[in-house]
Deep mutational scan, measured.
Amino acid sequence: PVYLSVKADNSMFIGNDPVTDETMITALNALTEGKKDTTIFFRADKTVDYETLMKVMDTLHQAGYLKIGLVG
């Protein structure tokens, strides 16, 4: 499974590897070998604001990742 996490300080990680807004999709493409039907499990600290969550989800959708599971 692929886990994308947003921490309380808005830092992002794919698994244990830090990513930025600019590198997130490139890292996901490498990890999933470009398979856009891969489910991305998205988790965020409860203090992360809604705007940040939606920005990340919008970026995922624009890149073609449509299977996003929200996890606690």
Rank of each mutant, 00 (worst) to 15 (best):
D49A: 14
Q62P: 00
M57S: 03
S11V: 10
L53H: 03
G15N: 15
V19T: 05
G69S: 15
V56K: 04
L66H: 15
T39V: 14
S5Q: 11
R43M: 14
T47G: 15
D45G: 05
Y3W: 13
F41A: 04
D45K: 02
S5N: 10
Q62N: 12
L28A: 01
T52F: 15
G69F: 15
V19R: 00
L60E: 00
T20A: 03
F42D: 00
G69K: 15
G72E: 13
I40V: 06
K36G: 04
V19L: 03
P1Y: 14
L4K: 00
A63K: 02
V56H: 04
Y3I: 13
G15H: 04
D45Y: 05
Y3C: 13
L31H: 08
M54V: 11
V19K: 01
L70C: 13
F13I: 04
D49W: 05
M24E: 00
L31D: 01
K55E: 04
K35P: 02
A44V: 14
V6A: 02
I25L: 10
I68A: 04
I25R: 02
T38R: 08
K36Q: 06
P18W: 07
N16F: 09
T52H: 11
L66A: 07
V48L: 09
K67R: 11
T39N: 08
N16S: 11
T52A: 09
T26I: 11
S11C: 11
T52D: 05
S5C: 15
I14Q: 01
K36E: 04
P1D: 06
L28G: 01
A27I: 14
R43L: 14
I14P: 00
G15V: 02
I14S: 01
F42M: 15
G69C: 15
G15E: 07
F13G: 01
K67V: 13
M24F: 12
G69N: 15
A30R: 13
G15K: 03
A8I: 05
Y3E: 06
T26N: 11
G15I: 03
N16D: 12
A63E: 07
K7P: 02
V71P: 08
E33F: 10
T39K: 12
S5R: 11
A44G: 04
A63W: 05
V2M: 04
D58F: 11
T23G: 07
L60A: 02
K46M: 11
A8Q: 08
V2C: 04
Y3S: 04
M12Q: 02
K36P: 05
M12Y: 14
V19P: 01
D17H: 13
Y65G: 00
M24S: 01
M24K: 00
E22Y: 08
T59C: 08
M57K: 05
P1Q: 09
M24R: 00
K55F: 07
D49R: 13
R43N: 12
L70P: 06
P18E: 12
T32P: 01
L70D: 05
M57C: 08
G34L: 05
S11Q: 12
E33Y: 09
K67L: 09
T38D: 03
T47P: 06
Y3V: 11
L53Y: 07
V19I: 09
G34N: 09
T26G: 12
I25K: 02
R43A: 13
V71W: 07
L28M: 06
A30M: 12
T47H: 13
N10K: 14
L70T: 10
G34E: 05
T39Y: 14
